[in-house]
């Protein structure tokens, strides 16, 4: 089946099978590897992507359902350097192995888009569908709460890519 989607701002015309899920199409046909295969049943959230600005579990979305929609993955967010949220994740060690990080960044991005000043409970709720086995979540919550806040208490310099480091 023909499928037209926009991934990280780029238009793609693809040929997919009816049973193909968006996750596999993104990884195998578009080459976007940040959405990960973790459970293939919507439990772990490591395949999270933004579809028209809302998070979806791309392992549960049939590729054909994405027809005409805009998909954004963490590569799209990082395109012109790290977002403020990613920079905070980096500086306060809000990830360890990094496998769940792309999905968590997207869930948190969606939250902050709609609610720039979330409470701890709001953050927990927004991230409850993204499993992380390494961090115990505490630094993640701290990072999301810190985004959008005045930068205080961070004694380390940002180490995001310099201007012009990325295409």
């Amino acid at each position: 089946m023909e499928l037209e989607i926009k991934v990280n701002g780029e238009q793609w015309a693809l040929n997919v099978a009816p049973a193909d899920v968006l996750l596999d199409v993104l990884r195998e046909q578009v080459g976007t590897k940040s959405p990960k295969i973790g459970c293939e049943r919507g439990d772990c959230g490591s395949c999270t992507v933004l579809m028209d600005g809302r998070t979806v579990r791309s392992c549960l979305v049939l590729a054909v359902e994405a027809e005409g929609h805009q998909i954004v993955t963490v590569e799209g967010i990082s395109y012109q350097g790290l977002s403020e949220l990613q920079d905070l994740f980096l500086r306060i060690n809000a990830f360890q192995c990094g496998f769940c990080a792309p999905g968590i960044v997207l869930s948190a991005t969606e939250l902050l888009e709609h609610n720039p000043n979330p409470t701890r409970h709001d953050v927990q709720e927004a991230l409850a569908g993204n499993l992380c086995r390494c961090t115990g979540y505490e630094p993640i919550i701290e990072a999301v709460l810190g985004a959008g806040q005045p930068k205080v208490g961070l004694d380390r310099p940002a180490t995001g890519p310099a201007e012009g480091d990325r295409p």
Binding site: V74, L90, C97, R156, T159, G160
Partner: peptide, 14 residues
């Protein structure tokens, strides 16, 4: 508290 040297890879999707 040096910033993780694998940090940019992991947070950028690289």
């Amino acid at each position: 508290d040096a910033v993780r040297i694998d940090g940019l890879d992991k947070i950028s999707g690289a």
